[in-house]
């Protein structure tokens, strides 16, 4: 077994929205994109972070007692945590029995990840599920992602890879045979807006997708729809148009915006740039799906 390690921020069992069947999704840390609406803000940075959920804090003060830099203080006002002084040593999390303080982003070996993933094989078997690697951007930890995919294939698992598409094409070429389905993000059809909303150019992403398709890679096009940002008719048309260019596409998933990124941001002491804090209404989501479906024969579903 290879000794490659990677930074994992979550392993989620019973994932039923990340590919066929019942799956385990491995979330890797680090992403080259900086999407405004990011619903996994804790996945952006490549390094471990300390998450603090104040609701869980029982004000026991054990963290303050062990912190070498005096970042934690308990007072009548509650628990204050000075992130500026924090060295992210994680000592406080070891003493936090109520799990208010936790390290996000654990260095794990391929073996460690796979032993978790393989636990749910009986569920993959009845449901035709498997493993999904997501992020962050899994291609940003390329060697680790590749090793996980290889190991999963050795165990005959069905592999999905969720990707922003923003990685060198030669890397996709290197792994595409190990991936049964690419869950390929498509966030914005106007290049200038794409750059503005995600921080990276869009052209390379489409080029990668089209080439992967031509290599025979199966894909699901995953489109986050964010009110007031990309819920435009023209964007829906472009989604359909892009899907129609692909011969191995399975379906289009519309991923309606959800504001959970907000509380997640505050847990790791980050700002949340979005002003929209509401879940879109069901009717609205339905109208998005219909708008895309009107222009293509590729099935469109809520993801």
């Amino acid at each position: 077994m290879t000794q490659i390690t990677g930074k994992v921020f979550d392993i989620q069992k019973f994932s039923i929205n990340d590919g066929p069947g019942i799956r385990t999704t491995v979330f890797l840390k680090g992403c080259p994109l900086d999407c405004l609406w990011c619903h996994n803000p804790e996945s952006k940075g490549g390094d471990p972070e300390i998450s603090f959920i104040s609701e869980k804090c029982i004000l026991c003060g054990y963290c303050a007692a062990v912190c070498p830099n005096k970042c934690h203080a308990i007072s009548g006002k509650g628990h204050s945590y000075d992130r500026a002084k924090c060295l992210r040593c994680g000592k406080c999390t070891m003493e936090c029995y109520s799990k208010a303080l936790e390290v996000i982003g654990k260095e794990m070996s391929v073996e460690e990840v796979m032993s978790e993933v393989l636990k749910d094989v009986p569920f993959y078997e009845t449901s035709n599920g498997g493993m999904t690697i997501s992020g962050g951007e899994p291609m940003a930890q390329f060697q680790f992602t590749k090793a996980l995919l290889e190991e999963a294939k050795r165990h005959k698992l069905h592999n999905c890879l969720e990707t922003s598409g923003y990685a060198p094409m030669e890397r996709y070429r290197e792994i595409f045979r190990l991936v049964d389905i690419f869950l390929f993000d498509f966030k914005e059809s106007e290049p200038a807006r794409h750059l503005k909303c995600t921080g990276v150019p869009q052209e390379v992403i489409i080029r990668n997708l089209v080439e992967l398709d031509s290599l025979g890679a199966k894909s699901v096009l995953r489109c986050p729809i964010i009110p007031k940002i990309n819920d435009r008719k023209s964007h829906f048309k472009e989604i359909a148009k892009l899907a129609d260019r692909l011969s191995n596409i399975i379906e289009i998933n519309i991923l309606p915006y959800h504001p959970l990124g907000k509380s997640k941001s505050s847990r790791i002491g980050k700002e949340y740039p979005m002003s929209c804090k509401e879940f879109p209404e069901d009717d609205e989501v339905r109208s998005w799906i219909e708008a895309v479906q009107d222009s293509t024969k590729v099935p469109v579903k809520k993801g």
């Binding site: 019973f14 039923i16 069947g21 019942i22 009986p122 569920f123 078997e125 009845t126 449901s127 599920g129 579903k301």
Partner: peptide, 22 residues
């Protein structure tokens, strides 16, 4: 919400089947 569509219902049924098989 897990019971809201056929796909999800089918997966729940498989969850139960897997539990029974084990």
């Amino acid at each position: 919400s897990l019971f809201s569509n056929e796909e999800s219902l089918a997966k729940l049924a498989k969850l139960i089947r897997a539990f029974f098989r084990q």
